[in-house]
Design a binder for these strands. Structure first.
Length: 507
RNA sequence: GGGCGCGUAGCUCAAUGGUAGAGCAGUGGCCUUUUAAGCCAUUGGUUGAGGGUUCGAGCCCCUCCGCGCUCACCA
């Protein structure tokens, strides 16, 4: 490593030297830890409450987060995965030399181990009276947080690490220093676990389908391209799982789901990361109306499991996830927000004119459905704060959804919106192989030949359809956005451990 | 990709174009129930990088790098 050591790191290097000179290994291979800090506290409080309290002896380990030396005594706090506990070092117990050793060679950020008995200080804090201690892992670089203060049980950080660039590039430091960041990822894991539990209980089978795909599809998005050297074949990182999961319906797996990563080669924003986590499920003999019910049930179940409530705070709004959610047709929603009844303008030209008359600046080359979708995003989406199902979408932006009976230009599709953000997308799946082929051909016409979002013809998918797929409902949801809602964060980067940042030259 | 803004010590932040500072962290010392412990002393900087204007640039101008917001884009 060529990087120069800072003065602070130099000082710690010298401490490592001195420890070794005294025969102390700063990175030992074993720890003798007996309890987490939370276990030790709970054990002590139980003993304390009993008629004949027994002393609680424990060896605790964690990262040194605060030190207060006071001459012949020193107070410190260590932090492990379960929380913090105070340590009390006394020269009487340890000898002046050992105490001096702690005060001089141990730093904030070091992992240490301390053995002793638990007691309560005069101020009432459960504390380990240290009889012996040792270094578990010396931190060479100081953590980027200066100091913590506990006020009414709340930990207040002073000069906490807040610079977003450092936080995301050095997520380890962010996590080490900002406990609420660790909490986001506990919520995230619990959310995914709750969704799995829900789907498993409904008899769904969890599956894994290819990430490297010879033909991408299932969404309108630009893919990442990669190459298999030995096969001499370009491959795409998947933009959705849809076409593979529906092949499984053909194969007789009636209820399947997959939770995994999608990749889209597009701009990044507060709600877009180049790779993101998606849940898709497909259910034979279901349709978009039954999937709608299942969606509100599943999301409110997850919220209840993770947060213990259906009422969440997001962006200053209280949002109630309790079913049933509002149902609003896309047409009605646009009448109310954009002031345009799309049924009255069934042609691109007339819709363009109507939009211009309203002072909009539509893309003159867009297909009809894309114009509708644009108005949805501009006018309707920001108003959908409380959970809302928007339903019945234009056929030409939904090439995998089944048309409504008697209304071939509209498909049985809905999207779920919460907090002004699209959360999920679902439809009655198109299972007519001839109609599906016609849709693929339409896509080729409606989109310019150089539009990278154009759906490539997937012959194998059509072959699968031609074997017969049961009538089905399908569903897709961005897990990252759900976690944003449940944790009240407004940037997708906050809920992804290592969000994408432009790489930076470091000497 | 466009527009706007930001980048100063390990962290959080100051500094009319005129000697780069503070708090915390660090270092040395005092202190036996503290909890942002306190007190005394003290170290620490290529002001993101490079160029320009000027007697003089952290500050003004240009280029580049990175980050943020925003627009475009985004089922």
């Amino acid at each position: 490593m060529e990087r120069e050591r800072t003065a602070l790191e130099q000082a710690r290097l010298e401490k490592i030297q001195r420890l070794r000179e005294h025969g102390i290994e700063p990175y030992p291979t074993r720890s003798e830890v007996t309890h987490t800090t939370a276990e030790a506290r709970a054990l002590f409080e139980r003993e304390e409450a009993s008629a004949n309290p027994n002393p609680v002896a424990a060896t605790l380990a964690g990262r040194l987060r605060a030190v207060r030396p006071m001459g012949k005594i020193t107070f410190a706090h260590i932090e492990d995965g379960s929380g913090r506990i105070q340590l009390f070092f006394r020269a009487n117990e340890l000898g002046q030399e050992a105490l001096d050793g702690f005060n001089h060679e141990y730093d904030l950020g070091d992992f240490i181990q301390a053995s002793g008995t638990v007691f309560r200080t005069r101020t009432g804090e459960v504390t380990l009276q240290v009889q012996s201690f040792k270094m578990l892992a010396k931190a060479l670089t100081p953590l980027p947080a200066a100091k913590d203060e506990v006020v009414d049980g709340e930990v207040i950080r002073h000069a906490a690490l807040t610079d977003p660039e450092t936080r995301f590039r050095q997520r380890y430091a962010d996590l080490a220093v900002n406990p609420e960041v660790r909490e986001i990822f506990r919520v995230r894991a619990a959310t995914v676990a709750a969704l799995r539990r829900y789907l498993d209980a409904q008899g769904f089978l969890e599956v894994e389908t290819p990430i490297l795909q010879p033909i991408y599809g299932g969404a309108a998005a630009k893919p990442f391209v990669t190459h298999h050297n030995q096969l001499k074949q370009d491959l795409y990182l998947r933009i959705s799982f849809e076409l593979y999961l529906k092949r499984l319906l053909v194969g007789g797996l009636d209820r399947v789901y997959e939770i995994g990563r999608d990749f889209r080669n597009e701009g990044v924003s507060f709600k877009h990361n180049p790779e993101f986590t998606q849940l898709e499920f497909y259910m034979a003999y279901a349709n978009y109306l039954s999937i709608m019910q299942m969606t509100e049930e599943m999301i409110s179940f997850a919220s209840g499991q993770v947060l213990g409530t259906q009422k969440i705070q997001f962006n200053g709004h209280e949002i109630d996830l309790t079913p049933p959610w509002r149902r609003l047709s896309l047409r009605q929603g646009l009448i109310e927000t954009a002031g345009i009844d799309i049924d009255q303008f069934p042609e691109v030209e007339s819709l363009l004119a109507a939009m211009r008359a309203k002072g909009m600046n539509p893309n003159p080359h867009a297909a009809w459905g894309k114009l509708v979708d644009g108005m949805l995003g501009d006018f309707l989406e920001p108003t959908l704060i409380q959970p809302t199902f928007l339903y019945d979408y234009p056929r030409d932006i939904s090439p995998l959804a089944k048309s409504k009976p008697g209304d071939p230009q509209t498909v049985e599709r809905f999207e779920g919106f919460i907090g002004g953000m699209e959360l999920c997308n679902a439809f009655t799946e198109l299972n007519d192989p001839l109609d599906q082929e016609a849709r693929f051909l339409e896509m080729g016409r409606e989109y310019a030949a150089d539009d990278e979002e154009r759906h490539p013809m997937d012959e194998d998918y059509l072959r699968a359809m031609s074997y017969g797929m049961p009538p089905s409902g399908g569903f897709g949801m961005g897990i990252d956005r759900l976690v944003m809602l449940l944790t009240d964060h407004h940037s997708i980067r906050e809920v992804i451990l290592f969000p994408h940042l432009r790489s930076r030259e470091e000497e």
